Computed example of a mutant assay.
Amino acid sequence: MHTVHAVMAVKHRDLAKSRLSAALSADQRARLVLAMFADTVEAAAAVSAIGSLTVVTPDPLVATRARELGAHALAEPPAHADPLNTALTAAANDVRRRYGAVRLLALQADLPALRPAELADFLTVAPASRALVTDHTGTGTSALLAGAAPDPLAPRFGPDSARAHREHGAVAVLGHWPGLRCDVDTPDDLDTVQALGVGTATASALWEFGITTRGGEPVRTVC
């Protein structure tokens, strides 16, 4: 398993997760964004193949939390028609300025049920060039892996991103990685990750909101 350097993009908490508005208040959504981000970073950081993690965000609280968790934080680039992919590209460029011609991994920031073993397994079985993990819907992308330079990250996140990434040469890698595949955008997604078991930050936030899983304590088991 070769070393890879991960990048993540997190929008301002006040603008995130609007599709959860039927289940959570604006304040709860903002707190949940930060909690899911923290659990995702902690899970990724526990993978030995992850050489560094860089987070691009306009939110100072997210940036502070990223640094507390050992990640490198960057300010989001100026407004752009495609802010997510612009932010990830900026992070990828920054990583290669600092570390050289390294492999890159773009990871969604809302994977609260992610287990380190899932991500480690993906990095072990993925090809040396471009690869992706489709999300639980089958159309999105939860992780995008690029080979060493000159292979660019070339993120194409957005609607039907799995197809867009495949058309740009990424191979969809198969594997049983439910936590890696389940990002959270809707109340149904929130139910799914609770059933899988979430990390401690997300569990704490949901507990404070009065939300628990059908099985009881919504805490991710160690894997």
Results as ranks from 00 to 15, higher is better:
residue 17 K to W: 14
residue 160 D to N: 15
residue 8 M to V: 15
residue 87 A to R: 10
residue 146 A to E: 08
residue 54 T to S: 10
residue 196 L to G: 03
residue 54 T to D: 08
residue 196 L to V: 01
residue 110 D to W: 06
residue 152 P to Q: 08
residue 173 V to Y: 12
residue 105 L to A: 00
residue 190 L to M: 04
residue 2 H to S: 12
residue 20 L to N: 08
residue 145 L to H: 09
residue 136 H to I: 11
residue 98 R to L: 15
residue 1 M to L: 13
residue 138 G to L: 11
residue 107 L to D: 02
residue 73 A to T: 01
residue 110 D to Q: 07
residue 16 A to P: 07
residue 104 L to K: 05
residue 102 V to N: 00
residue 197 G to R: 04
residue 117 A to H: 12
residue 19 R to G: 00
residue 92 A to E: 09
residue 148 A to P: 03
residue 101 A to H: 12
residue 68 E to L: 12
residue 189 D to E: 01
residue 166 R to N: 00
residue 48 S to R: 14
residue 9 A to P: 00
residue 84 L to Y: 15
residue 136 H to G: 06
residue 137 T to N: 10
residue 157 F to Y: 14
residue 185 D to V: 08
residue 166 R to W: 12
residue 178 P to T: 09
residue 178 P to K: 05
residue 181 R to C: 13
residue 60 P to G: 06
residue 74 L to V: 06
residue 66 A to F: 06
residue 86 T to F: 12
residue 79 A to K: 09
residue 206 L to M: 01
residue 176 H to M: 02
residue 129 S to M: 11
residue 116 P to S: 06
residue 166 R to A: 13
residue 211 I to E: 01
residue 168 H to C: 13
residue 33 V to R: 04
residue 170 A to E: 10
residue 164 A to R: 15
residue 191 D to K: 05
residue 17 K to Y: 14
residue 137 T to Y: 13
residue 219 V to C: 04
residue 86 T to S: 14
residue 222 V to E: 10
residue 118 E to L: 01
residue 135 D to C: 11
residue 189 D to R: 02
residue 220 R to V: 02
residue 204 S to E: 08
residue 142 S to C: 12
residue 98 R to Q: 15
residue 76 E to Y: 06
residue 107 L to S: 02
residue 184 V to F: 08
residue 10 V to Q: 02
residue 64 T to I: 07
residue 129 S to D: 15
residue 112 P to R: 03
residue 140 G to Q: 09
residue 45 A to Q: 11
residue 91 A to H: 12
residue 93 N to L: 14
residue 53 L to D: 03
residue 152 P to Y: 08
residue 110 D to M: 05
residue 29 R to N: 05
residue 207 W to E: 08
residue 106 A to N: 07
residue 168 H to R: 14
residue 159 P to N: 10
residue 90 A to I: 14
residue 49 A to W: 00
residue 105 L to W: 03
residue 43 A to C: 09
residue 129 S to L: 13
residue 50 I to D: 03
residue 65 R to G: 00
residue 160 D to M: 13
residue 212 T to K: 07
residue 88 L to E: 11
residue 38 A to H: 04
residue 185 D to I: 07
residue 176 H to S: 11
residue 47 V to I: 05
residue 199 G to I: 03
residue 40 T to A: 06
residue 153 L to V: 04
residue 39 D to W: 04
residue 97 R to F: 02
residue 115 R to F: 03
residue 25 S to M: 07
residue 69 L to D: 01
residue 211 I to W: 00
residue 82 D to N: 15
residue 203 A to T: 04
residue 167 E to Y: 12
residue 50 I to E: 05
residue 188 D to V: 13
residue 5 H to A: 06
residue 191 D to S: 06
residue 45 A to I: 06
residue 210 G to V: 01
residue 31 R to V: 07
residue 65 R to D: 02
residue 125 V to K: 10
residue 195 A to M: 01
residue 62 V to F: 02
residue 92 A to V: 12
